[in-house]
Computed example of a mutant assay.
Amino acid sequence: MNDKVRIAFLASETEIAQEARRHLAALHGDVPPGEADVIVALGGDGFMLHTLHATQHLDVPVYGMNCGTVGFLMNEYQEAGLLERLSAAEEEVIHPLRMRAIGTDGKLHEALAINEVSLLRAGPQAAKLRISIDGKVRLDELVCDGALLSTPAGSTAYNYSAHGPIIPIGADVLTLTAIAPFRPRRWRGALLPSGAKVRFDVLQPEKRPVMADADSRTAGRVVTVEITSDPGVSHRILFDPGHGLEERLIREQFV
């Protein structure tokens, strides 16, 4: 990239991120995302996910700079040398999950998830879920607080907090993780091919209601949820050399 690169600066609502956006836009100019060669997202991981979802139709790479807390998907914030960093950045391409959920009202809810699709109990009693993979029932009844299906990119997020495994970004697998499983008590989840079709059926949905989320965007209370990878959608993320997702996934396991 040269000094004529067109940059769209997007920022979360925090004052730190908004101030960073004002400074950087004054230095480099600012164009709408639809006219940009690259989008610079200023915030935390939540804002990065928001930006990727909002701009997925543009086929423009997104370079994040951390103005939030965790910043796993972000680069270190520095005002100096931005054009040089953009020119040297390494690109990772990730594909999201597609969720198709049927609500308790019979309505279909569809959404994409870069990190994970999660099912969570929505009442005082534990959820009861039946899990099918590619049309075959693999677990008749999982009694739990919930379950989630994660991409490699999302494996260090909610999945990791639920004691799921970290997956290398190049691995062609998804991780299925239970949240506070009660029965089967020893079930530790599963690693699945990325092309697998995963279906959750909510058992006793009136007595034991369950809600479904795709990257924290809720579909409300559901009776069934089907999840597949969507290779037709690509997200392009830029990282400083030596600090890409592959390196971060490995480093996270040795903290």
Rank of each mutant, 00 (worst) to 15 (best):
M1L: 14
D3Q: 11
A11M: 05
I16W: 05
I16Q: 14
E19K: 10
R21Y: 10
R21T: 10
H23R: 15
L24I: 04
A25M: 00
A26R: 14
A26E: 14
H28S: 09
G29Q: 11
D30C: 13
P32V: 11
P32Y: 08
G34S: 13
G34R: 11
A36Q: 10
V40Q: 12
G43W: 07
G43L: 05
F47Y: 05
L52K: 03
H53G: 05
T55I: 08
L58G: 12
P61D: 05
Y63K: 04
G64T: 10
G64W: 07
N66W: 10
T69R: 14
V70G: 03
E76R: 13
E76I: 11
Y77V: 12
Y77G: 04
Q78I: 06
Q78F: 13
E79D: 15
L86C: 01
A89F: 06
A89D: 10
E92Q: 15
M99A: 04
R100W: 12
I102Y: 02
T104H: 01
D105E: 15
D105A: 12
G106Y: 11
K107V: 11
H109I: 08
L112P: 00
L112S: 11
A113W: 03
A113N: 03
I114G: 10
N115S: 02
E116S: 01
L119E: 02
L120S: 08
Q125T: 13
Q125A: 12
Q125L: 12
L129V: 07
R130T: 13
S132M: 05
I133R: 02
G135D: 05
K136A: 15
V137W: 05
R138Q: 14
L142M: 07
C144M: 11
D145Y: 07
A147G: 04
L149H: 06
S150N: 06
A153E: 01
A157E: 02
Y158C: 08
N159P: 08
S161Q: 09
A162W: 01
H163S: 14
H163A: 15
H163K: 13
G164E: 09
G164R: 13
P165L: 01
I169W: 04
I169V: 15
G170Y: 06
D172Q: 15
V173I: 14
I179Y: 01
F182V: 15
R183V: 14
R185N: 03
R186F: 13
W187S: 13
W187P: 11
A190M: 10
A190I: 02
L192Y: 03
S194N: 12
G195R: 07
G195T: 07
A196C: 09
A196E: 06
R199C: 04
D201V: 04
V202R: 04
P205A: 11
R208K: 03
P209G: 06
V210S: 03
M211C: 10
A214S: 03
D215L: 00
D215F: 02
D215K: 02
R221G: 00
V225G: 00
E226Y: 05
E226P: 01
I227A: 02
T228P: 05
D230Y: 06
P231N: 12
H235A: 07
H235I: 09
H235F: 15
R236Y: 06
R236C: 07
L238D: 02
L238I: 13
F239H: 14
F239W: 02
G242L: 09
G244L: 05
R248A: 13
L249G: 02
L249Q: 01
L249V: 03
R251Q: 14
